[in-house]
Write a protein that binds this DNA or RNA. Structure first.
Lengths: 339, 339
DNA sequence: GTGAAAGCGCTAACAT
DNA sequence: ATGTTAGCGCTTTCAC
């Protein structure tokens, strides 16, 4: 049967409050009592009721991971899972229980972040999958609950963000390509007005500039971060310009890199022999693609980990707002030829 | 500020209990009152506190998705994510809130399923990622809380399972290969003692038997469901037997199919020209592999959906125990040659 | 059809 | 160092 704290009190002959204090590690409990309580609780198989705890306590420390757009976009699954694993790794290490909730657009419209936290007795949350167009983005700045968003920057006094320094990262990979003798590049762009695309392009331009390459001499293919558009764009470009198109495709995502590769191969070329290709993201399955495509790995796992860490800092120490850049890394592959 | 049911009562001039009944759709509330309460609640931005609800109510209907082994085995991520999405799809459609919790081995040892449910005020859960060696497997049969496990069959009066009919599925894909003229097959086995491997092999043998093929004339490569072992095994076999090894590799997973393909190609052969290959699972990224490998798609999304549906049936209607076989399907690819 | 009041299991003053 | 007591926000008898 269900054992409550009352049963433990009975068993030990102590009062409920003493048992509570003993169980929660308060200092004003004698070692002997603490041990006795622990023993009895263990023996009885007592487990505290989370709801009751939440209800009575003001400084609850429940935290959650909110997933927006869970049911949309199948291709971002791997990202989400990596973030989830990273976040859990931190929380488990620190013995913090992390709940996960999916929150759709309709739900976001009905309640703001504070309300959501109140509903689930949360003292803060990591939010992932949030898009700039989501209703939550509007209410979050006025929130009073600690919140860490992944890959999106929000206003607010206690809303932090964990992101990638896309500009620097993209400059680095562009420089990597240039270092190998390429000067006629083809930028495979992401979604046209997306923030990350713009930041990555800036990095791209930074690299060109530093190396005295005229951006006008380099072509651009616009995509939606996915494979198909990159495939079509590349095919069209190569059919028109052949080798004159450039020597290296610098892509804003791993998926577009795959699209480029497929187009290149279908037209009878080889990579990296005829065209070099670089990716961006860190999708796991890319290791099954031959050649392994050199890329920036955004390190989503680490983002989850960093976000969890940051959240706990905000929950425990102080409410503050900051932007954290997670370390990315360049993965060396076989897809860039030394000219 | 945080609005409680008390505020709504004040606002409407009604009592707390009436408001509660109105909000929860009880029949003994006049339509007028109900509307008045709804309006006030909406206007005040009232959101019920989940913890308080759980604490006071006996027939709570919280359900959760428990994830075992979340931090292990990176390759099963995609499966998990698909199950998650499927389960959420059902729950959202029926406006049921689904929480997710990760539960590691240590936690499983500390508390049994019933205790876990009590701790989180759950009235049932879907469990995924559970291995036959996990501590939970021992305690689950004695549980009194509805539980649906994915891909693993448990004893118990209210523990159901959602699985794939591996035997039939594997027979089907084997038959598919045989139908295209192959009679000298190579079975690429999964983990040696795993249940699913055994079931799939049975299906394989069923097909051989029905077609009068002597199993002894067909070779086997043992793996761990992953790429590397399949790659090595295939390479060794092809170097020794060349084309005499067989004409088609029938694999127990998509990843092993990739390993086989890589070995085949590295030795200067082509698929499906020289060797046919089939997969099993339904990993999304396989669509980036050329040729697209014909396979059984386990339909993990559907498993999640079915599990959620089954759980709600168990929670609402009656406690019972059953095994549900989710529909799989054969995905036609380009990797099997007509001989 | 509605209200009063007793809890659900726990924490947190406040006493002692 | 331990006990007493008053809630946390809600549901649910039981009256009326």
């Amino acid at each position: 049967m269900a054992k409550s704290i009352y049963d433990v009190a009975q068993e030990t002959g102590l009062s409920v409050s003493t048992v509570s204090r003993a169980l929660n590690g308060y200092s004003d409990v004698s070692a002997k009592t603490r041990a006795r309580v622990a023993e009895a609780a263990e023996r009885l198989g007592y487990v505290p009721n989370t709801s009751a705890k939440n209800l009575s306590s003001k400084n609850k420390k429940n935290v959650a991971l909110l997933i927006c757009g869970l049911l949309e976009e199948a291709q971002s699954n791997e990202f989400m899972m990596n973030v989830i694993q990273g976040a859990y790794s931190y929380m488990m290490k620190h013995e913090i229980n992390l709940a996960m909730y999916s929150i759709g657009k309709e739900e976001q419209e009905k309640k703001d972040f504070d309300t959501f936290c109140r509903e689930y007795s949360l003292s803060g949350a990591v939010i992932m999958g949030l898009r700039i167009t989501d209703p939550l983005v509007k209410t979050l700045p006025h929130s009073n609950m600690p919140c860490v968003s992944i890959d999106i920057q929000l206003d607010g006094t206690c809303t932090s963000a964990v992101m990638t320094d896309d500009r620097k990262a993209f400059e680095q990979i562009t420089q990597y390509v240039i270092d190998r003798g390429h000067r006629k590049l083809i930028l495979v762009y992401g979604r046209k007005k997306s923030d990350v695309s713009i930041r990555r392009q800036q990095g791209y331009l930074d690299a060109l500039k530093k190396n005295g390459i005229d951006p006008k001499s380099c072509k651009i293919i616009y995509t939606d971060f996915m494979e198909q558009k990159a495939y079509e764009g590349t095919k069209k470009m190569l059919m028109e310009y052949k080798r004159e198109a450039g020597t290296a495709f610098v892509c804003m995502s791993d998926l577009t890199a795959i699209g480029v590769l497929r187009a290149v191969q279908e037209l009878g070329y080889e990579s990296p022999e005829d065209f070099s290709i670089t990716g961006y993201d860190g999708n796991y399955f890319m290791k099954y693609i031959d050649p392994f495509i050199t890329r920036i790995n955004q390190n989503m796992w680490q983002k989850g980990y960093d976000a969890a860490k940051l959240l706990m800092k905000m929950v425990n120490d102080e409410k503050y707002s900051r932007i954290h850049m997670t370390k990315y890394f360049l993965e060396d592959g076989k897809s860039v030829k030394q000219l």
